[in-house]
């Protein structure tokens, strides 16, 4: 956990292309699972997990967070967590969160 920029390593063009391939496959899976009736009970957590994975892949590789200083990760992930908390709080307050029932 060092604060020094990890500029030594850089993703290669090959890494970028592989990440794009994974993103394409996960997007296809996302669209596919909504049509599979047997997956209906777990479709929401499944979709959220796949979406989060895509989000993380773009942030880590395309936005270089994996290779950058932790300061930048903190600057982005901190507000991201707060904003997610804000969204959960708003949905809970308005009773939109199915977990808490209506």
């Amino acid at each position: 956990m060092s604060d020094a920029p990890r500029d030594g390593e850089h993703p290669t063009v090959g890494t970028y292309v592989r990440v794009a391939l994974v993103l394409t496959v996960v997007t296809a899976l996302e669209v596919g699972v909504i049509y599979v009736r047997r997956l209906a009970p777990i479709v929401i957590p499944l979709l959220l997990a796949m979406s989060a994975a895509k989000f993380a892949l773009v942030a880590l590789f395309f936005m270089h967070l994996r290779y950058e200083s932790r300061v930048l990760t903190f600057l982005f992930v901190g507000p991201l967590i707060l904003a997610s908390g804000l969204a959960v709080a708003l949905m809970t307050l308005t009773g939109a969160f199915l977990v808490f029932g209506r």
Partner: peptide
């Protein structure tokens, strides 16, 4: 971009 998280989050 951190501030944009709030923008789109809300």
């Amino acid at each position: 971009l951190g501030s944009e998280c709030f923008f789109f989050g809300t």
